[in-house]
Design a protein around this nucleic acid. Structure first.
Lengths: 334, 334
DNA sequence: TAAGTTTGTGAAAGCGCTTCCTGCAGGGAA
DNA sequence: TTCCCTGCAGGAAGCGCTTTCACAAACTTA
């Protein structure tokens, strides 16, 4: 049923190889012959089969995008960035949600591997760099997004999370805060670790120490922020400011504060990280470190395609977060 | 470099066709031979080439997901639902963002068509049912999600938007409101139209008419809700309640109300539609009609795969929205 | 004019599979 | 014994392309 290159060849009265030359603009074809072929293509509404083409050329013009969960508000912008850049370069993207689950990740890698895909963007991989390194060894182009460099041999796109953490904390310090708590993410995520390092750095620089109980371990989810804030408070601790390692936790913390009758920012200031849409919509709106998520996605896709096309050496693109001032921080009266 | 079926055959000392039979579990193979082949597969870490297989079988085990914008908070849940269900059935999904742009949509359809994909889920297509119907004619399995049935010949998954609109309006009516404005979506979207119908129906049933100026045309985006609410107010109109056709617009409307010093719900009650994550996080939290987005995605993917596997007749799955009571509605004192 | 060189085209191999066809045993039924 | 299934395996065609390779005509160059 579908019209093939053979049909076109017959219709145009030429050989298959000539048609191939025309549609790929390769080799010598006389002007008049080209016309004839093009007309036949048009008449027959011929669309070359990607599958057949891929079988020969060994490339599928599609890439995999492996991320924890598209439902988490930080990821759609990344996905969109990847998709847009990929599309512009002639690639389509296959979406994979792993829920941070190693087995799922592996199963996806297995599916994508050697099959449909020319390369893979890993977002925020928490697990199995084994996987990735093994892919790399097999020559599969791979980009890690938002994942600390030391861990992987892959090219990467990341924001400077240490600087981001520093910026956030510094901002609070500059406004007179001294009792600054930090709700961080899980320890196995470099983003979490790095932001914490930035937090510490800013404190140290100001000649302060992390007060006991002021460093909390969250989970990057709203509930975690809520829980840790509650925990902090219930231990009788009373920071004047909180820096949460992402917006979701910051918002959770704000909910906890509100529940116990503390007002943000009057009683406690809060700074987040990411600048998800939500951040500007909550009340008070959240001061945060903006990650250029869309741009990160774009850069990752572009870098990946460059690796696919010509085997570029390992590259690292480091973007910077920027502080977005809103209404969740008040200067401490002195 | 990659190991092929040929290598396996050589290693196992059998013919290629025998290997094929083993890995596909088809035809007769003696137990001992099967063992030998399996061992060779294992030793060589053979992974069948999807491309080659697809070329013969004419199926790729992947589906396209065409939606306006993954960045819009209503869509990630759908995407996740599609992805999860597809994965469970052995399919991968290709993500396509169209921004409601006809040209983009067409270009994606062209890319997916006859090429990589076994079927397509269209979410909320606003344009070019031409496209879709032409796909259908060519026998491409297509599912429309969240799109009114009359428009298309495709199978569809939808929520009863008329009922949803009715439920929302009725809820306000029951609380004594009589001056209920409606901010609807664009006219070319059936979801928008249907919700409006539900709104009208509830009013009519209560013996009321839509007051002039109370029916506003939004765009399903936050800004549209804000703008229309401002417009309403600036015309000197003063509804006691507003039903917005989606949460984003409801939140925009709330911002507008706040800006002019009107309090929600004390001065004006607001009801939204969708129940995006945001709805429970804004202040006051938003009373809304919940759409089972994740489930819709799942159903769509399952329906699509069923259509792909055996050519099912046109089907329609209608899900129901449910009212989620939160804090943006107050009863009108009588 | 002889010997390249450039231009244009077709035949055929092959990408890695599936599937159809063929053939060969062995074991009942006639 | 003859015939015909049934179980098993190999050969080969073919899916729709790309890409040599060979060849022929037309042009250069010396």
């Amino acid at each position: 049923m579908p019209v093939t290159i053979k049909d076109v060849a017959r219709r145009a009265g030429v050989a298959i190889s000539t048609v191939s030359r025309v549609i790929n603009n390769s080799g010598y074809v006389a002007g008049e012959t080209r016309e004839r072929v093009l007309r036949a293509v048009d008449d027959l509404k011929f669309v070359p089969s990607h599958m057949a083409r891929s079988l020969v050329s060994r490339e599928t013009k599609s890439i995999g995008l492996i991320m924890p969960d598209i439902t988490n508000p930080f990821f759609p912008a990344i996905a969109r960035g990847v998709e847009d850049a990929a599309k512009a370069l002639g690639y389509t993207v296959v979406l994979c949600n792993t829920d941070d689950d190693l087995a799922t990740e592996e199963s996806y890698v297995k599916t994508l591997r050697e099959k449909f895909i020319d390369g893979i963007v890993f977002v925020n991989v928490t697990s199995g760099n084994q996987e990735i390194n093994s892919l790399l060894r097999d020559g599969m182009p791979v980009i890690a997004l938002d994942r600390s460099q030391e861990v992987l041999e892959a090219s990467a796109v990341l924001v400077d999370n240490v600087e981001g953490g520093y910026l956030a904390t510094r901002y609070l310090l500059d406004r007179g805060h001294r009792l600054i708590a930090h709700i961080s993410g899980p320890d196995y995520m470099s983003t979490s670790l790095d932001r914490r390092v930035g937090y510490r750095k800013a404190l140290t620089e100001a000649g302060l120490e992390v007060a006991p109980g002021f460093l909390r371990r969250g989970d990057f989810r709203l509930e975690g922020g809520y829980r840790e804030m509650k925990g902090l408070l219930s231990e009788g601790l009373r920071p004047t400011a909180v820096f949460a390692a992402n917006d979701l936790m910051a918002i959770g913390a704000m909910q906890a504060l509100e529940e116990v009758g503390l007002e943000v920012p009057t009683d406690v200031s809060v700074v987040g990280f990411d600048d998800i849409t939500l951040a500007s919509l909550v009340k008070p709106s959240l001061t945060t470190i903006r990650q250029p998520a869309y741009q990160m996605g774009q850069e990752a896709a572009r870098l990946l395609v460059r690796r696919i096309l010509r085997d570029e050496p390992r590259t690292e693109i480091i973007l910077r977060g920027e502080l977005v001032e809103r209404n969740s921080v008040a200067p401490l009266p002195r």
